[in-house]
Design a protein around this nucleic acid. Structure first.
Length: 383
DNA sequence: GATCCACGGGAATACACGGATG
DNA sequence: CATCCGTGTATTCCCGTGGATC
């Protein structure tokens, strides 16, 4: 075998093992089946839910902590497993097992980002409790509430509901959630960032979680990287660097890693160089709006954001809106309104520009406050 | 016919500036 | 000098519309 052959072979090998093996595994919007580094919290929540296994409802609860601390990771994994243990009540099972009623309640996970109204909250819970399909519209909130009440009326049917991401701008507050889910046979666990001290009404049980310790976050990123990134494409020191940079925020750390991997993949590199890692970090604003929130926005708004991240050197919202409107099949005035609304909820930021002299209010520039590189990739790979 | 939600569009209001007014 | 005014933008606010589906 001559040298040229050897080189060609190396090239082929490199082609055959792309840097990114699985984008999902390093995505900040997905969670692992088994959370890493949050054993104690998992135990506390299991203790809290313990009465459920004896057929009683636990008290309502509130889990709080900063972004990227693993709240959603733990709760989604936990409720996923619990829901699998005890599936939704099916009429068939109910009739055949009436003599010996099911002891454990139904476990339902609801993401408030996708259930922003009272209607949507009740609907999501009902959908998790009953087998039959639940309408999205054509029926009023009161009727859905009645149906949920009926579904929970028999002595053996109860539900424990996790409501994730309460009290963000754009999602219902803890108070709204407790209003919407005020049912005799239902207990809820709300998850949010707001510290309990700054909330009015509070459920009896509270759980606090802090930022990840460095070692724990290193475990998280290592686990994710080994599942999603090619072997040897990233060394341990680079992971450590990412951990230091992330300052205990797993979301931001993953976003940086994802961006770096994507950068390397696009460039056709066989590994993630430090420069790609830099670029990955650079594409994550600090503080950053969670990508899950961006991905939960209505289609058109995401389309506007997608066009926005490709925009370069546009110095006013009006100009940006015109340019975006050419891309997305919306009128410029609607795009403009979307831009202001997205700024209002913090997804983008209005940066005051320089006065350009003469009359008139100076324009503002729009800056994304979410990880742009990850968003671009996630948006583009959506069906 | 009722219902929910995302869109569409534009009117109303706020702001920045230079110049006029008292 | 302090304040008001007109002009041109930027920003906010409000409500109607239409698709989809019970």
């Amino acid at each position: 075998m001559d040298l040229a052959d050897r080189i060609r072979r190396r090239q082929r090998t490199a082609d055959e093992t792309p840097v990114v093996i699985d984008y999902d595994a390093i995505s900040p919007v997905t969670h692992l089946d088994e959370p890493v580094g949050r054993g104690p919290l998992l135990e506390r929540l299991l203790d809290h839910l313990d009465p459920a296994f004896a057929g009683r409802l636990p008290p309502n609860g509130y889990l709080h902590g900063p972004g990227g601390a693993g709240k959603s990771a733990v709760v989604t994994a936990l409720f996923d497993h619990l829901a699998r243990l005890v599936g939704p009540t099916s009429p068939a099972i109910l009739t055949t097992t009436r003599a010996q009623p099911r002891s454990a309640p139904v476990f339902v996970y609801v993401d408030a980002r996708h259930a922003t109204s009272q209607f949507a909250l009740v609907r999501a819970v009902l959908d998790g409790v009953v087998e039959e399909p639940v309408p999205n519209d054509g029926v009023g909130t009161d009727r859905l509430r009645q149906r949920l009440d009926d579904a929970l009326s028999s002595p053996s049917s109860r539900a424990v509901v996790a409501v994730d991401h309460v009290g963000e701008s754009g999602t219902p507050s803890l108070e709204r959630v407790s209003e919407a889910l005020d049912f005799e046979a239902l207990a809820w666990l709300a998850i949010g960032r707001t510290a309990p001290e700054s909330l009015g009404v509070l459920p009896p049980e509270r759980f606090a979680v802090g930022r990840y310790e460095r070692s724990a976050l290193l475990d998280v990123l290592t686990e994710r990287a080994s599942a999603g990134i090619a072997r040897d494409a990233l060394d341990r020191e680079q992971l450590r660097r990412t951990v230091r940079w992330a300052e205990g925020d797993a979301h931001d750390g993953l976003a940086a890693l994802f961006g770096a991997a994507d950068q390397a993949a696009v460039a056709g590199h066989g590994r993630i160089h430090d420069r790609a890692l830099d670029a990955g970090m650079e594409a994550v604003p600090r503080p950053s709006v969670p990508l899950g929130r961006v991905m939960a926005l209505p289609r058109r708004r995401q389309a506007v954001l997608r066009a926005l991240v490709d925009l370069d050197g546009v110095e006013s919202i009006a100009d940006a809106s015109d340019a975006i409107a050419r891309e997305v099949d919306l009128s410029a005035s609607t795009v403009k309104r979307f831009c202001y609304e997205l700024a209002e909820v913090g997804v983008v930021e209005r940066v005051p520009g320089e006065s350009r002299g003469g009359a008139g209010r100076p324009p503002s520039r729009l800056e994304p406050r979410f990880p742009t590189r990850v968003f671009r990739r996630l948006y583009d790979s959506e069906p």
